[in-house]
């Protein structure tokens, strides 16, 4: 291996990496927010007793869980604008695709969390005369959410990994900036290694945090 590593070549481009990282966080943050909210809604629709609400939401969840993320990204960037007859920015397409994907996955998480609550809690609330809404709000959801936090944070980590795919539709996130820098410096090893290391630090730290959180939540049960 006669290669000479030279990371100093990248020094002038540190701000570029930083800009990319910022966009990564922006994308992940927005999609998490939208995705989890939509996911909660989907979960409620999916488990409702009104039949015409159940199966469309079930189909929607299946579609967005099973389609590969890159296919979703590409579809929303190239195909969807044709469908609605309007143009779409790359960031918007990425937000749409990743939020819907996150919504579908988190819907199943929410449903599982709610169903994991002991039946007796439902009965105790009903015996007091609570309406379903009050029951959910005061008794079921507060307990369910505590259980759902570990899988939800795992989802967040998965989502952050997925933001890298947005580089293929020219969203200026971290990997895109890495490719740009490579095109300018012709040093793919340094460029991509730095990108990989940055992701590694963020995601590994995230995983450790999740594990710690899981342990802490497990204690209070």
């Amino acid at each position: 291996m006669g290669y000479q590593f030279d990371f100093t070549v990248l020094q002038p481009y540190l701000p570029t990496f930083g800009r990319g990282l910022l966009v990564t966080f922006q994308l992940a943050g927005v999609c998490l927010l939208l995705g989890f909210t939509a996911g909660l809604l989907l979960a409620l629709l999916r488990s409702s007793r009104i039949a015409p609400l159940v199966w469309p939401s079930a189909v929607f969840i299946e579609i967005f869980r099973n389609a590969p993320v890159l296919v979703q990204l590409v579809w929303f960037y190239y195909a969807f604008p044709v469908l609605i007859g309007a143009t779409m920015s790359a960031f918007a397409a990425a937000v749409l695709a990743l939020s819907l994907n996150t919504a579908a996955f988190s819907a199943e998480l929410f449903r599982g969390g709610i169903q994991s609550i002991h039946r007796g809690q439902w009965e105790a609330g009903r015996a007091l005369g609570m309406s379903n809404l009050t029951l959910m709000r005061r008794i079921i959801l507060p307990q369910a959410i505590k259980r759902m936090i570990p899988p939800l944070t795992n989802r967040a980590i998965e989502l952050t990994k997925m933001t890298a795919l947005a580089s293929t539709i020219a969203v200026p996130e971290l990997l895109y900036q890495g490719r740009l820098i490579n095109a300018v410096t012709f040093r793919p090893i340094e460029s991509y290694t730095v990108v990989a290391v940055i992701y590694l630090i963020i995601l590994w730290a995230g995983t450790i945090l999740v594990n710690r959180l899981e342990r802490r939540l497990g204690e209070s049960d």
């Binding site: 890298a164 795919l165 990997l175 890495g178 793919p188 090893i189 991509y192 590694l200």
Partner: peptide
Amino acid sequence: RNTPPLVQLFWFFYAFPILFD
């Protein structure tokens, strides 16, 4: 597990060949 698969792919396609000739 903690790096995006796409980053891994780029690294192996663009970086690895140069590194190991």
